[in-house]
Amino acid sequence: MKNIALFPGSFDPFTKGHHDIVARGLTLFDEIIIGIGTNINKKRFFPVKVMEKLIKESFEENDQVRVISYDGLTAQVARELGARYILRGLRNTTDFEYENAISQVNRYVYEEIETIFLITSPHLAPISSSIVRDLYRYGQNVDEFLPYRLPAELATS
């Protein structure tokens, strides 16, 4: 039986911190499915299809990584995909409080699911998608925070 983990998030955008969590998670799991979920409480800045393509390209050399987009409850999607683990990264104690509550609800929905937390690598801890979005929105170069280059056409949207 393969150990499959779902790494869910809005990934708006997917940062080097996210990439690091997946790369490190590959030492623990046979397969990681990066799931771009719809968060009804957030309005997306970068289109899902663009993020899905860029994330796929950044892992194109690794057949242990798949990228999907989904609607619905993460725990239900994990069950449908055959994933017994949810992989999450933690930058700080605030992240832990938030992620802990979500992991408890996921266990309620899918009793067999386990959430595995990896602590963010120290040099990547200050990076967040919201900071990257703000920098990008105001014309700053964000290349050093991302594992890919954003397409030029996004700069005009």
Rank of each mutant, 00 (worst) to 15 (best):
Y70W: 04
E112T: 12
K43E: 15
G72P: 13
N106A: 10
D71Q: 13
Q140L: 11
E111S: 12
E144D: 04
N3I: 02
R79A: 14
I36Y: 00
T115N: 04
P122Q: 07
A23N: 11
G139F: 03
A152T: 06
I4V: 15
V105P: 05
V105M: 15
Q104K: 12
R79N: 12
P13R: 01
L90A: 02
Y85A: 04
G89L: 09
V105D: 04
A78V: 05
K2F: 11
I113C: 06
I32K: 05
V67F: 01
R84N: 13
Q140N: 10
A78F: 08
D95T: 08
S130K: 07
I34T: 01
R133M: 10
A83V: 04
I119N: 03
Y110E: 12
F45R: 03
Q104V: 03
E144L: 05
G139D: 08
E114M: 03
I102G: 05
M51Y: 05
T120W: 05
T74D: 07
L81F: 05
I55S: 09
Q140P: 00
K56A: 11
Y108H: 10
N100T: 09
I32C: 03
R66Y: 07
A23H: 07
K2T: 13
I4H: 05
Y148F: 14
K2N: 14
R66H: 11
P47A: 12
T156K: 14
L54R: 01
V109W: 06
S103Q: 08
P126T: 11
E144Y: 02
L154E: 11
E52K: 13
P13H: 07
I127Q: 12
L28N: 06
G72V: 08
V65R: 12
K49N: 14
S121A: 15
L154H: 04
D30K: 06
R107K: 15
N141W: 04
M1D: 12
